[in-house]
Simulated assay, not measured.
Amino acid sequence: MISAVAYGWKVTSNAHKNHETEGFKQRAEDVDQKAVNIHVANIICSSIQPLQNRAVLNCIEEKVGPDEKFPWAKFRIEKGFGALEKLLKDHAGRYATGDEVSMADAFLAPQIDAGIKRFNVDMVKFPNFNLENFLCI
């Protein structure tokens, strides 16, 4: 089974080669927007997604205790979302980095879903994550 992050890289890499795949546009023509998309993917891969892995959660449990692993992970995930919120404030449109689905959306959507369902993250704190659109991706 391929992980959501690996699948996101696979989809966006293939879309980049084909420019468009079934309406999915991998990256905008604008160099700045490409950089923002890669920055979003990097923050997710390094600061948010790893905290949702069972092995990482088990390690946290060993270090801080079973009652603290989810609150600790939730705090760090919210910090990552906060960093993304600041990054996206000048780029968000209908989706994370504009009005078309991009690489940032492919990486962000599963993290929003897991943040809400597994960690009870209050997404109201992050208005630049247009939830209506993310939940449809």
Rank of each mutant, 00 (worst) to 15 (best):
S3Y: 07
S3E: 11
A4P: 01
A6Y: 02
G8F: 00
G8W: 02
W9S: 01
W9R: 12
K10H: 08
V11S: 07
V11L: 15
T12N: 09
N14I: 13
N14A: 11
A15V: 06
H16V: 01
H16D: 08
K17F: 04
E20H: 10
T21F: 08
E22S: 11
G23R: 11
G23P: 08
K25W: 03
Q26R: 08
R27G: 00
D30V: 05
D32F: 09
D32L: 13
D32T: 12
Q33L: 15
K34R: 14
K34H: 04
I38S: 06
I38Q: 06
H39M: 05
V40R: 04
V40Y: 01
V40T: 05
V40E: 04
A41C: 08
N42D: 14
N42T: 14
I43H: 10
I44R: 05
I48V: 11
Q49N: 14
P50G: 06
P50H: 09
P50V: 10
L51T: 07
L51I: 06
Q52L: 04
Q52F: 08
N53Y: 14
N53T: 02
V56M: 11
N58C: 05
N58Q: 15
E61T: 15
E62Y: 03
K63Y: 09
K63C: 09
G65Q: 14
G65T: 13
P66S: 14
P66E: 15
D67P: 00
E68L: 15
E68H: 14
K69I: 04
K74T: 15
F75I: 06
R76I: 09
K79V: 06
G80M: 07
G82Q: 12
A83L: 14
E85Y: 09
E85R: 09
K86A: 07
K86R: 13
D90G: 06
G93M: 04
G93I: 03
G93V: 01
R94F: 00
Y95S: 02
A96Y: 02
D99M: 08
D99S: 08
E100Y: 02
V101L: 15
V101D: 04
S102R: 03
M103A: 12
M103W: 11
D105G: 05
D105T: 06
D105W: 01
D105Y: 02
A106Q: 10
F107D: 04
L108Q: 02
A109F: 02
A109H: 02
P110H: 03
Q111K: 02
A114D: 09
G115H: 06
G115E: 04
G115Y: 05
I116Q: 11
I116V: 13
K117A: 08
N120G: 01
D122G: 05
M123A: 03
M123N: 02
K125A: 13
F129R: 07
F129M: 15
E132V: 09
N133E: 07
N133F: 05
L135N: 12
